[in-house]
Design a protein around this nucleic acid. Structure first.
Length: 736
DNA sequence: AGACTGTGATTTTTT
DNA sequence: ATCACAGTCT
């Protein structure tokens, strides 16, 4: 028995087909990662290629890491297979040869926040109306252009007819010029310049074409045009290109993903072998059937039908509730029930929603009940202001051409370098075509800056210089940054914010921890390495399935993951599918439907879906019908657990909401209810002491009697003031 | 410089 | 509802 025997026939066929292009249509949960890793192992073991002659592209850094681990596990040692995301791969190509394009190999990477700042600056500088030229839309326009390999000059040529387009073209030109001056690349540039490098320098692309005998691309349905181009260039010589994907899971069109890449693969590679993996190993029959039923309504797709040998499993539970708070209550209660009754641990349960905004209410409820949870997404850790500020210092210390970072910190925390001084510095830099840091260095020569300010600028310059020297003598990045933070007295500034100050400080501390860990893991890693590593990190990369918490994330982030138990709240037309897509026609709706398909197929054993009658969103109340996607699931697969009173008229509904929908209650459902009742007898008074399993001991400050769910406010000595629902969390009352 | 206030924009998903 | 930003006041 060898490792390949554990694969099914189709999987094995894909694994052993190593001669020429291969399109692997792998449905959700069909074991595509298994196939990919085994295929790599097979190629190596049979001497078809050395590990470093194989390139595998995954969608996230996390997937890369996982794949590398699994390959290593299969063939023994550290295998040196080139596994990375598109963006990281491009960074590696460019670090080696970007000097051929006029950049320095130590280029830095701008994230979208940096990019937007730069664009905003350029718009302002050109006296354009910021309302007409919003940085976000300009950036997305530029990114779209880059994804289509349209250069600034070409964009300019194409823009002749339209004044605003022409201005945008000029902004694009200036933006690229500015990036170059900063020795910086944005996300789009990483791909764009890679193509440019490959096309202008045949010897470079030839090197990689020869080197990579086998290329595998995961999540191929979400590649865009420029990625397609890179893949083609790399695979040209050996043609051993294996792409894996599922057209039904293409959900990144808004980012330029082109579903035609997978639908038309056979046209691009006429000799391509096509293998379909249709056996699902992940979900119950019920869940899979529901997913199939939903996706069936899409027209533009490859014909296939997933099946499974797994058990029928439980029905999908559907809750139709009054409002989003009740929805969050229900989800919280089920999570607790599942955990207490040893059905699912916390980390086996995940809440997947359409929009990040939905996480808020649910988070509040989970928090109040002391359920451990983690939210993936929203804003990335490294994009938080306080983190970006510290990073800006590190970036300037690392590379002083980084104007955007310099502007971030030149007067933060405030040090008497006011707006007019900064303006003078910037103007001087522009006139002399130098970087802002050089202007800082030469501040004494700038007449428009007052003497007092000049001194301040000099002090700042010296601060950076001192820190840079210090860095050379210090081994640990963590220690260094700690000293940096002390020197600029950052915490003092953070703690000025009464509400979020502590949280911000904690975040900065977390960053310090990451830095220490980073340099202690590998002493040779430099600050530059760290900055590069974090530049391409996404939130999902830090998701850790080992710790025991409930995970909350968007459906997009959930791609590639699986959970025994999945909750999909907010199944309402207008939210999911979003009203944006409803108005924009079938193509958009089909994309939303695929997203729904992705969500359903994340679940292994149990799926809970819910919709609400009225949802408070973006400042007003929305009344939406139950999502069409729910209607597409055959009724026999769904168990309606709770439903509102029969359908009301619109005005009646409005009235009902005005009178506040009564809180939900499951009169006869669960055994937690019994438990609840027992606990409910416990009453609390101001001044009582209580013990919480996570927060420790605290004093009750306030008791709010909200009917069945009494809510108390507790001051925990260790964790500060929290609001809790004592009936749900098994709070222990202490006799003191 | 920093705190405070009002206004207007945002509101789908993100490597 | 929430946030960012500009303008105003101390």
């Amino acid at each position: 028995m060898n490792k390949y025997d554990t694969l099914n026939d189709k999987q094995r066929e894909a694994c052993f087909y190593t001669d020429g292009p291969l399109l692997l249509l792998a449905g959700a949960g069909s074991g595509k990662t298994r196939v990919l890793t085994h295929r790599v192992a097979y190629i190596i073991e049979n001497g078809l290629a050395k590990p470093w002659e194989i390139m595998a592209i995954t969608f996230t850094n996390k997937a890369s890491k996982e794949m590398a681990e699994r390959v290593d596990a299969l063939i023994g040692t550290g295998s040196n297979v080139f596994i990375s995301t598109f963006h990281s791969a491009c960074v590696r190509f460019l670090r080696k040869d970007i000097d051929k394009l006029g950049f320095t190999r130590s280029f830095i990477i701008y994230d979208s926040i940096d990019s937007k700042k730069l664009i905003k600056d350029i718009v302002k500088r050109n006296n354009l109306d910021p309302k007409l030229y919003k940085e976000a839309s300009i950036l997305s326009e530029i990114n779209n252009a880059k994804n289509k390999l349209i250069s600034p000059d070409e964009y300019y040529r194409l823009s002749a007819t339209n004044f605003q387009k022409r201005k945008t073209a000029e902004l694009y030109q200036e933006y690229q010029k500015e990036l170059k001056k900063n020795n910086a690349l944005d996300f789009g540039d990483l791909l764009y310049y890679t193509v440019e490098l490959f096309e202008k320098h045949p010897e470079v692309v030839d090197y990689y074409q020869t080197k990579f005998k086998y290329i595998m691309i995961d999540e191929y349905q979400d590649t865009n045009m420029i990625q397609f181009r890179i893949v083609n260039l790399l695979a040209k010589k050996h043609q051993n290109l294996c792409v894996v994907g599922d057209d039904d899971q293409s959900i990144y069109k808004f980012r330029g993903a082109d579903i035609r890449n997978i639908l038309e693969f056979e046209q691009h590679y006429p000799k391509a072998k096509v293998i379909k993996l249709e056996q699902n190993y992940r979900s119950t029959k019920t869940i899979l059937e529901a997913a199939n039923a939903v996706i069936k309504s899409n027209f533009e797709r490859k014909q296939k039908r997933l099946w499974t040998d797994n058990a029928i499993g439980e029905k999908i539970s559907f809750y139709n509730l009054g409002n989003e708070k009740q929805e969050a209550d229900v989800i919280r209660d089920i999570i607790i029930q599942n955990e207490r009754n040893d059905i699912f641990t916390y980390n086996e349960q995940s809440i997947l929603y359409r929009t990040n905004a939905q996480s808020r209410v649910i988070e509040e409820k989970l928090f109040a009940s002391g359920i451990p949870y983690k939210i993936v997404g929203g804003l990335n850790f490294y994009q938080r202001k306080e983190i970006k500020d510290v990073l800006a210092y590190l970036r300037i210390i690392n590379e002083d051409r980084d104007d955007i970072s310099l502007e971030r910190i030149i007067n933060y925390p405030t040090r008497g370098i006011g707006a007019s001084t900064v303006a003078s510095l910037k103007e001087y830099a522009r006139e002399n075509e130098i970087n802002l840091f050089d202007a800082v260095k030469n501040a004494k020569n700038i007449d428009s800056i007052k003497e007092r300010a000049k001194n301040k600028v000099y002090e700042f310059y010296k601060l950076i210089k001192d820190l840079r020297e210090k860095l050379e003598n210090l081994t640990s990045l963590g220690d260094f940054t700690e000293e940096l933070i002390e020197k600029i007295d950052l915490y003092k500034d953070l703690l000025k914010d009464a509400q979020k100050g502590l949280e911000k400080r904690d975040n900065v501390n977390e960053l310090l921890g990451k830095l220490s860990e980073y340099s202690s893991n590998d002493e040779n890693k430099t600050l530059a390495d760290f900055l590069e590593d974090i530049a391409l990190i996404s939130d999902i990369d830090t998701y850790d399935e080992k710790s025991d918490y409930v995970t909350l994330m968007t459906l997009h982030s959930a791609k590639g993951l699986e959970f025994p138990c999945v909750y999909m709240p907010g199944m309402e037309d207008g939210l999911f599918p979003s009203y944006m897509s409803i108005n924009e026609g079938d193509e958009q709706i089909e994309e939303e439907r695929r997203l729904c398909y992705v969500g359903i197929t994340r679940a292994k054993k149990k799926l809970y879906i819910s919709a609400v009658q009225s949802r408070f969103l973006n400042g007003n109340i929305n009344y939406n019908p139950v999502s069409r996607f729910v209607e597409e699931i055959p009724k026999n697969l769904i168990e309606v657990k709770y439903t509102r009173q029969k359908a009301e008229t619109f005005t009646a509904r409005k009235k009902a909401v005005a009178n506040k929908p009564k809180p939900y209650s499951f009169a006869n459902s669960s055994n937690t209810n019994k438990e609840k009742k027992v606990i409910k007898k416990q009453t609390y008074q101001v001044g009582d002491f209580v013990k919480h399993r996570k927060f420790g001991v605290g004093e009750v400050l306030e008791v709010k009697d909200a009917g069945a769910d009494c809510e108390i406010k507790v001051n925990f000595s260790a964790k500060g003031i929290k609001r809790l629902m004592p009936n749900l969390i098994g709070l222990e009352k202490l006799d003191i």
